[in-house]
Structures are given as C-alpha cells and as structure tokens.
Design a protein around this nucleic acid. Structure first.
Length: 286
DNA sequence: GACCAGGACCATT
DNA sequence: AATGGTCATGGT
C-alpha cells in the first residue's frame, strides 16, 4: 500500500516503440530510452523492459490502474490475434513484422481534437501542431528535477475561449474553425464525450460525425483509439491503398465499401487488424 | 516546382 | 448517390 513514483507493469507481447510510433498518439516524445508524455494530467515516462514496462511519474501514485487502462497492458493480445482470419497472408505478414503492436485507450477529447487536426497532414506535422497547442495553451505540469517541463493537452474550455486567429497561428490552417466549433459545442454541453461510452457503435459514430470537421474516418479513429470499440475501422489513404492492393486487385473502392469488407473479413477485432496493416505499410514503404 | 499528407465539406452532375 | 474543387501548411 505504498505510494511511489516508480512501478513496473508486467506485460507480454508489448512493443512500446511500435505502439507509440503508429500514428494513434501525437503528444509522446522519445527521449533516449524513454517515452515521455501525459496521462490523466500526470507527467509519465515509460521504458520498455523484457517482460514489463518501467514507469516513472513526477508525483507519488497510490495506484496505477489509470495507466494500465491507457496502455491496455492487461489485454491478452494473443486472444485478439486469434480472432484474425486464418489464411490471410497480408494480415499475417503485417502481424509478423510488428510483434506487440497495441491499441492505446486515450482520452476522448484529446483524441478527437488531435484527429480533427490530422486531415491531410503528415504525422510529423500533426505532432508539431499538437506540441504548439500544448506549449501555448496546455497546463504546465510538474516534472522531476532536471527534467523538462511538460504540458498537458489543452482542455476544451481553454480552446473554446480562443479566437480562430489564435488557433490558425498554431499552423493548423483550415482546421482551426473545426476545432474551435467542436470545443465550443463541448463547453455548451451539446456534445458530451463521456456519453458515448455505452452507446451502440452506429449511434456513437453518428454523434461524432455531427461535429464540424469530423467525418467517417476521424469518427472511427476516435471510436477505436479513445472508446475502444474494436470493430471501428478508420480508412485513410494508406489503409485504402493497402486494402485495394491486397483484396480488390488494385481497383479503386469507396471507403464505405472498404469498411463493410473489413467488418466481414477481419472480424470482431477489425480495428486491431487495421492498425497492423497501417503500421506495416508505413514502415515498409520505399 | 509538383505532388502528397491518418479528410471534410460544399456545389455540381 | 457520385465526382470535383477547395481549404493551409510543410515534407519529400
């Protein structure tokens, strides 16, 4: 029952590097052996060990369930992979090249806001915009002595109070009015992120796509990365290209049809399959 | 310089 | 229902 700033979460089949680099989070930074970021308003560093993730926080923690939830460290990955279709060489190859790739369970608001900023942006640019937002408008968090200060992702309340010009100055371009309007809907109580947790997927998706700047793709990212709906299947340009190449003889197929194919072909954890394919084609390009 | 990036939205067929 | 143009910004 002791409080400590360090712990070790036992894990199996967990590839922290691949997970943090797979385009689901944009606010984590690699510093030497560690990944530095913020979870639930707490400064955290993570380091991969053989059968554990070694954790350090700035302030003593009485318990660590909040972090196990974010990392999904207690999920049995082999049980997930066992639901993948047998005899799919493309999916099999993707799994084989990124052993231990995981889906995180992010804060819904940060995930929603980040992916509103993601449209037709490269991942490095999304990271840059998010960093600027955090440093200008996020809460400054206490870090251990000798460590750089960290900044939480700004709250919806904080962003809702800004002007469109202030957001555009963070280099987000035409996405600024989308982010601003969505933040203001949350502040007005017209969109309640927590209310989506226990909804059927189609209903949750409909509420997300009703937000400005949120279409089917971004909605599925939030459903998968924040709410953990395992059938959500974001179809971006990379995934569309991969599915078209692997399963449709290079024909151009509409995203809606690709999602229906994925639901049928990949099964109850199609979202996980999507993440493996996405990471695979992005790391094997060239 | 041309082309593209974890798209969404609107006007036009 | 289905295409095409437009919206900023930065990397390759």
């Amino acid at each position: 029952m002791s409080s400590a700033c360090e712990t070790s979460l036992p894990v199996r089949d967990y590839n922290l590097e691949a997970t943090m680099s797979s385009g689901q989070v944009f606010a984590w930074e690699r510093v030497a052996e560690n990944w530095v970021g913020v979870v639930n308003g707490r400064w955290v560093t993570l380091r991969q060990a053989a059968e554990a993730i070694v954790v350090r926080t700035a302030e003593p923690q009485a318990e660590w369930s909040w972090l196990a939830e974010f990392l999904q460290s207690e999920l049995d990955l082999r049980a997930v992979l066992a639901t993948f279709p047998k005899g799919d060489p493309h999916l099999h190859a993707a799994v084989a090249t990124c052993h231990g790739l995981r889906l995180l369970r992010q804060d819904p608001w940060e995930c929603l806001a980040s992916f509103i900023l993601s449209s037709t942006k490269q991942i490095v640019q999304i990271q840059q915009i998010v960093r600027t937002l955090r440093e200008r408008y996020g809460e400054r968090l206490r870090a251990p002595a000798g460590q750089r200060a960290a900044f939480a992702f700004p709250t919806a309340q904080r962003l809702a109070a800004l002007t469109e010009a202030e957001l555009r100055d963070c280099k987000m371009g035409f996405r600024a009015p989308y982010l601003l309007a969505t933040a203001r809907r949350i502040v007005a109580g017209e969109f309640v992120p927590e209310a989506l947790r226990n909804l059927p997927v189609p209903e949750a998706r409909a509420r997300l796509t009703a937000l400005p700047g949120v279409g089917e793709k971004i909605a599925d990212c939030v459903l998968l990365f924040a709410y953990g709906f395992p059938t959500a299947f974001p179809v971006d340009v990379w995934v569309a290209r991969a599915l078209s190449t692997f399963y449709f003889r290079n024909r151009r197929v509409r995203p809606e049809r690709l999602r229906r194919f994925a639901d049928r072909h990949f099964g109850p954890n199609a979202g996980y399959a999507q993440q493996y394919l996405f990471h695979h084609i992005r790391t094997q390009r060239g």
